[in-house]
Design a protein around this nucleic acid. Structure first.
Lengths: 198, 198, 198, 198
DNA sequence: GACTAAGCGAGACGGTACGTCGCGTCTTTAC
DNA sequence: GTAAAGACGCGACGTACCGTCTCGCTTAGTC
């Protein structure tokens, strides 16, 4: 019956905090991200942050969810050509992850994801795994572009994982990297349809 | 001309510090790892740490180098059967990374690697990438187990990367995971050796 | 024309607040007395307090006025024997001020009085100064128990002040203290009436 | 044998802190005195304060001891004329306590003394009670200026206490107040010296 | 053997950030 | 229009570590 007595949560404050978090995270990275800094940048009391979020991680996870840290979710399209589609998707991720202007941000995200489960899940989602990528792979399997027993989950992990390994190892960018990875993992593009084997 | 005047670096202290670092890292993780804590645990003055290491990361990197954090370097063997060899190697890594007793440590290592270049390189080395893994893959290529144009570097990244993605996503363990990954990435084991086709 | 629109001040709330103030003041002292604590203890919104009182001091002053902090006003009686009357009055104050169970409360009152004018006046009144004590002293002067030019105000201040000094200095209780003080300040009881000088 | 290992306490910091405490106390009073403010004013880390003092009170007590808050200890002199000596002493205290420029400071000291035992003792000492005042009163008793059974302790308390009561009650200054108090409490000056009685 | 250096344990120092408490104001809903 | 509830911006609390800087040793060459 009662519903809610007392003042309600300020949406203004919520947005200011998330935007400040994104800005500070981008500027200063995962370590060096401070609640005080966020509160000051958002023009908000620290208590307002502690009231609604358990930790720095929860803030970052929510930023990811709102698309304030990654440009948008990276989603593979479905044109019928699975290699081209995955190459495009992976290329977008790679460009972001290895662009000098955003590489540090990406590494910070990986660090945050490694330290916090919530962030981990959210980052996976933002990169397209598992859901949207799985969907695309299933469609490829159905179309006969992948073997019927191809372990889709593992293929997806391998694709994204390769990016993360490159990022951790500070491997510099290479234009064909996306294509190479896709062909490495999905196998080379069959030049001719199955009948060619005959 | 002057060789060295004054006392020399204490090896005792060096070892105590590295061991304390490993212990604290294992117990408390990458964040929550403090120089003061290490110094206290090692029975050492803080200055002795700052004198010889630039940062927490440098300490952790040296611990990795000394094998104090990971059980040993994960090295693929060469029995002639590349799939079996890589499966064994990957399984060892996966068991470590997903064992509840060591998963947190592994995640902390990934976080540290994402934040610090030195640690990143050291962790790659400890996992066998690039050097020893590349060697094994080259040998496989030479043996005709991989296509001549197989992108070895990308294959290696994909294998390790898949583990890291699983770890970040908190995917629970699965006994055949290593085998699935290897077959996903290297392709299915040919039923007959290459010569059979002739 | 209507004298009053809307709801009127809740006497229930007023009493709950004052009683909570007295209780919290007694328990926790002048510092550590918080509006939030009072509001919670009284089951009242903070605003209801701010609406009717300017400050913590005003609350405490009103508690004094209502006799919620000191057992009652300390009033000297008039039996004709000024020394006995003042000794009784002072003894009551001293017992309260130096009883271990109430000494802390009394000290808190002195602190509050020193910090806030309102409380200062209210505390003076509660101790009987100036009005009721002055009345008794005037009556004594009229009866010839005090010299005609005795500075009544100063005598009263000295009597109460001595208690406060003892309280501040944490002097422990002494049964004859009240009597000693009265005889110190009013001078020794003349053994014989004035005629004895003749 | 060793005595002291490690860096020693910085006297510079100690003095800066005490001076900052005195300055802030004078400016802002007992409440509104903050450790952060003191640390900032002293150019010192908060921890340096917490390392050496238990509380704000301890700081204030030490300031009193060092004479940084009261101009100096108020000490009665001994010219042989007890009434004149005590009047001069009390007048100095009264002038300080009721001067508009310092009254607030004095009230703050009383508040602090009421809340904290250490400060209480230190303030008593600074006002001359009990030691130096007792000495003067004993000398007066020995000289026959006071009755042999005069309760010296109570007389002293009454004199200082009267000042405190006036301060708490915000009584405004009056030039003859010191003289009136002395004559009220010690009794009127005998018109003739003791020898006249003989 | 005396005389430097440097290393070392200890720990004080000026700082930054933590997470909590209380302030006094404002906003919402209930009566 | 008063009241309970409670979110808000703010300021201070006392604590944990940071990285730097003395201290009083000890340890090793160099004269």
């Amino acid at each position: 019956m009662t519903g809610q007595r007392g003042a309600t949560r300020s949406e203004t404050a919520r947005i200011a905090i998330l935007e400040a978090t994104a800005a500070q995270f981008t500027e200063r990275g995962w370590d060096h991200l401070t609640i005080e800094g966020i509160a000051a940048a958002a023009g908000v009391g620290k208590q307002t942050i502690y009231r609604w979020w358990r930790s720095k991680s929860a803030l970052v996870a929510e930023c990811l969810l709102e698309g304030l840290l990654l440009p948008a979710s990276f989603l593979p399209v479905d044109t019928g050509d699975v290699r081209a589609d995955l190459t495009a998707w992976l290329d977008a991720i790679l460009r972001f992850a290895e662009d000098p202007r955003t590489a540090e941000l990406f590494r910070s995200l990986v660090a945050a994801a490694a330290e916090d489960e919530q962030v981990g899940h959210q980052l996976s989602d933002a990169l397209g795994t598992p859901s949207s990528l799985q969907t695309r792979l299933e469609s490829a399997r159905a179309a006969g572009d992948l073997r019927p027993d191809a372990p889709l989950r593992e293929l997806g992990d391998a694709l994204v994982g390769a990016v993360i390994v490159r990022v951790i190892g500070r491997t510099t960018h290479h234009d064909e990297a996306a294509g190479l990875l896709v062909s490495a993992i999905l196998g080379p593009r069959p030049d001719r349809p199955a009948g060619a084997e005959a």
